[in-house]
Nucleic acid binder design. Structure first.
Lengths: 348, 348
DNA sequence: TATTGGCACTCGAACCACTCGAGTGCCAAG
DNA sequence: CTTGGCACTCGAGTGGTTCGAGTGCCAATA
């Protein structure tokens, strides 16, 4: 991935620049770095290295007479060379442990608590993406007749997440039929994931000629009607969006408006996550890597959480490229690990 | 309410100023108004009236050599003297009719569609506040056992709105018991509002000594457990919050941050609505009248909607004090009336 | 007596010239 | 290869000037 490995000096200078810039937000000058690094280099030497780093694309100039600022590539290098596996501080761990112990493995509660927790700890935007509905495990399902040919489907997942949807049916089902259909589904399929159920229903449908059972027919129609519509669905909860406004890099109102519009259209964020993330450990997506102009100057830290070995969803934070990666990454990592073990234990 | 009635000239000048300011956003000078009004007054005369209006508190100066700008009191006067009952334009009515006909009287869909509709038509923030849960009419209720002493309550309202909540019980109910309890509740109480159900359950509880029926006991405990927690609840859906950023009066980032924080904390908006609104027709709350510093320079147009004579919720828009009241009021009025008749027809 | 033209005054916006200083790039000496 | 020196750049801040829209007030007028 990384094209050229930087030599020691360049490496340490780049690192200093990024660290210092993250701290202050100001462009960093050669004199500052010369004082900061223990190598005892003169500003002039530092300038030479800086010029090289700029040529290689790790740094830029806001203008001729300003200090250097990391580019996305610079941040990328910085993040890639961070020591992995750093632990959050004891205080942060305490806060996290306490919050998550109250949640247990309850996904429905986690969807409220975790984004808030992330947002509070990092002062950025915290988020959690639920597992796709197709992986949800059927606990309970209900069909409720609203009016003629309008049926409300209420689905409860093993972990207590409720989804619902109104179905337009081409037949007018009676309340009794609907209840029976619901009970049948629970009796037959409880404990399976929706995608499993879906394929079983399809198999049943193939045998439909042989089926004259009215109930079973209804079940097939209603069940597939519901499942077809929804299975790709994920939910995404964002929290602390106003934190973004605190950062000086977003003082431009128009940029910010577009950013918030992106927050409102969560599906765009979701496809972005889909595109960028491989489900393994913490991932960081920086600025232009996201390939979405509204997320310019933004970075995204994400980690998947899972039950057993099965990856389910993501959680993480969204903030300006200039953020404390070390701390944030360790927090996101810690939370996702802890939450995964809680989920897995609960699923037993 | 209005302290002094303005004489004809002052009235028409004030109205001109407000209209013109709404249009342009700029402070309005005497010369502009002199040209604009058909009375053929000279700028100097207009100035005199303006000075009077300022003394009475209807106008201000940004600074000595700028034109006049309406105060909240000025907008209030303007709004109060608008002809009530204006109709939206034919095009707007077309859009509204089409959107709402698709919704029918389905509250659950209206909660998505109406705020979006309002936001799109007015380019402001559109909102809808659901009826309080206590007025919801029971259609279906389910108790689902999640784990030991954790019960998920799923409640479906007549109009298809689903609410759910996890209950910590002090007893471990079996799945069968829970199902029976749900069915019992539906059989006995379907069609009543939650507050009615609540009082009936309390009456039953009073007779508890006489009740040795295990089922009934469970019903009482679960039912009141759920109802106690929630009955005051309303939901509020906001849409188009990013529209606010388009208005120059909110270019200050810090003000805007606080505004968005208010959007995130919807309960604050809800109590505000509670405080300011009497449920009759369209109401306008302007700036300081809201008595909430974050809503400075904001105005709120709201109208209640209802089923039969029974007031249920609100819908409307939120925008800067400088907005096209005439158009917005007529839109909000029209939508709330139309939606009310749809709801009432549906409830039959 | 209400209206109006005239006039001095105010104040923000825009523009310009200037300085200051942090920081650069480059070169020649070490 | 490193470094001190030096000329250069450019944004930010400062102060002065002009311009114009708008006001307030007063004296003249219908």
């Amino acid at each position: 991935m990384r094209d050229v490995v930087l030599d020691d000096r360049a490496h340490s200078i780049l690192k200093s620049i990024v660290t210092h810039h993250i701290l202050t937000g100001e462009p960093v000058g050669s004199r500052t770095i010369a004082k900061l690094t223990p190598d005892g280099l003169s500003p002039a030497s530092v300038r030479n290295v800086m010029a090289d780093l700029e040529e290689m694309g790790y740094l830029t100039h806001p203008h001729t007479s300003a200090g250097r600022v990391p580019t996305d590539k610079g941040y990328r290098y910085y993040v890639d060379t961070l020591l992995p596996g750093a632990h959050p501080g004891a205080r942060d761990r305490g806060v996290i442990d306490r919050s998550l112990s109250r949640v247990g493995g309850e996904l429905s509660e986690a969807m409220e608590v975790i984004p808030k927790l992330l947002s509070r700890l990092t002062s950025q935007v915290g988020y959690l993406v639920s597992p796709p509905l197709r992986d949800a495990v059927l606990k309970h399902i209900d069909f409720v007749r609203l009016h003629e040919r309008k049926v409300l489907v209420v689905f409860v997942d093993r972990s207590g997440v409720v989804s619902n949807r109104i179905l337009d049916t081409d037949e007018d089902y009676g309340e009794d039929d609907l209840q029976k259909a619901g009970r049948y589904l629970v009796a037959e399929f409880a404990g399976m994931t929706l995608s499993e159920i879906r394929s079983r229903l399809i198999r049943l449908m193939a045998e439909e000629r042989a089926v004259f059972d009215h109930l079973l027919k209804s079940v097939i129609k209603l069940g597939t009607g519901y499942l077809d519509a929804e299975t790709g669905d994920r939910r995404m909860v964002l929290e602390g969006t106003t934190n973004i406004m605190k950062h000086p890099e977003f003082s431009d109102v128009e940029t910010m408006r577009r950013l918030f519009q992106t927050f409102e259209e969560k599906h765009r964020l979701l496809t972005l996550l889909d595109r960028c993330l491989t489900p393994s450990g913490v991932r960081v997506v920086i600025g232009s890597e996201a390939d979405d102009p509204t997320l310019d100057k933004m970075a995204l830290v994400a980690s998947s959480y899972h039950v057993d070995e099965h990856t389910t969803g993501w959680l993480g934070i969204l903030g300006p490229t200039r953020m404390e990666y070390e701390r944030v990454v360790s927090l996101v990592d810690y939370i996702s690990r802890l939450f995964s073990t809680l989920l897995t234990r609960q699923a037993l």
